[in-house]
Every structure is written in C-alpha cells, then in structure tokens.
Amino acid sequence: MAMSEPAASDTQSDGDDAEAIRVEDLHKSFGSLEVLKGVSLTAHKGDVVAIIGGSGSGKSTFLRCINFLETPSSGRIVVNGEEIQMRADGSPVNRRQIERVRTRLGMVFQAFNLWTHRTLLENVIEVPVHVLKVPKDRAIKRAKELLERVGLGDRGDTFPSFLSGGQQQRAAIARALAVDPSVMLFDEPTSALDPELVGEVLTVIRDLAAEGRTMLLVTHEMKFAREVATHVVYLFEGRIEEQGPPAELFGNPKSARLKQFLKTVG
C-alpha cells in the first residue's frame, strides 16, 4: 500500500502549505479488473505532482476518479478541505456536490475535447457564464486575457477544428484556467501532438507551474516532469511503486521496475 502525505516538505518554502487535494486509499475496479489498488496522494497549494507510469498502469483512471468521471470503488477524496460524500460502493451521495467540486478542478484532456461548434472565446466563457453565472462581459474580458496569455489572443473567433493540435490544447488550457481552478488535472496533455507542437504547450504549463498553480500532471515527458514537478509519483499496476522529489526519483531510482521504466522511456 502506498504512503500518503508525500508532498508536504516540497512546498513549505512557499510558506503556503494548505492542502489543495487529498486522496486516500483509492480503489477502482472495472468489473473484475482492479485498476487502482489503493492509491493515496496529497498535494498542497502550489505543488506540481507529476504522475508517471507505463500504459495501462491506471494514471488516467486515477485522475478521472478524482473528479468522478469514473466512480471510485472506495477511498476518500478531499478537495480544498471539502470531502466528497461517497456511499459504501463509492458512488456519490450528492450530485450537486460533485458538480460544485468539479468546477474547482480544471481538467485538460489528451484529446483537447474542445466544443467544436463554439469558437475559442465561446469555449472559454462557456463554463464561467453558464455554470458559475459570471456576468458575460466580465467573462469575455477574462477569456480574452487568458487567450492572450496562451498565445491565442487573435484567435478568439476561430472554431477549434481550424487550428493545430498545439493551438487547440493551449485553448483547452485557457478554458480550464477560466474557472480559476484550485487544482488543474492534466492527462497527457502533449501525447496527441506532433513532436514539433509539444514545446508550445509545455511552455504554457511551465508558466503555470512557475506562478504557483497546483496541478496533477500525467505525462510521458520525463525531462519536463523532472524540470517542473515538485513531486513525482510512479504508478505500476494500480499502485504507487515509488515517489519522491524529482531529483531523487529520476537521479536515484530505488525500485527495479522504475529503473526499467526510466530506461525504456529514455
């Protein structure tokens, strides 16, 4: 079983070590297939937790359980001090609580998942205006700032399908930022991109890390994880096999499986 409280020491230098998210003993099975076998993880404000691991190790499932896109089988999830009420079978007690917590978790998907019938600006204001009930003019002003920030200031009126993957992913990051999330969840944000487009997306994420955004980042970009993460978690077959500060985990891995994994991904 994995340990909890991993990341505490990493953020104390900020003087802001309030807990942003805590997951305790998370289990998830699909039918008879147990995909998560008790994963615990805590991120404090400003932490960047990189989650690495082989394909099928349960990284996506872990992120998707946090915002209940998948219903966990058991465990505890606390976001910003608010514990999500679960029944014994892991199903949520209160749909509204889930919806409220979801608006605090900005998710960025591997396949971008922008709404293709809406322009970039419409994509970015959609949740603030309709879910969070922010006045439209204020949402538009903020959306324009965010698009500017991810380098798409002149593309607000363009529909997603007319843009490159890198541009779409940057717009998706702007959409996630628009809800001013407590924690951002990235699920392999650059894996669907052509190699020459990876850099522009990583640059945006690096900026967010530098400004102290709390994030959980599933990635196969090991160099990038080492550079931006405050804490790295290595998942193997639904368990945390090893975790620690990036320098230690990448520089001096202890588990044989992690050593092997790091060799294969270069």
Binding site: L69, R95, R96, E99, R102, F112, N113, H130, R175
Partner: peptide, 29 residues
C-alpha cells in the same frame, strides 16, 4: 464525440444544461 460531453461533465455542467448547451448543438449537424 464522447470527449465533448465528458469535458462538459468534467467542468461541472448539470445534466440538463449539458443536453441543452453541448449535446443538442453538437448533434445538430
């Protein structure tokens, strides 16, 4: 595309709003 519906759920859209704001406009074509 399932991802568009999933994105709406991930951002806390309630079911009826999701139908009105995402599913119906996206299925029109």
């Amino acid at each position: 595309p399932q991802g568009q519906i999933e994105a709406a759920r991930a951002f806390g859209m309630p079911p009826f709003m999701l139908m009105r704001r995402v599913t119906i406009p996206a299925m029109m074509s």
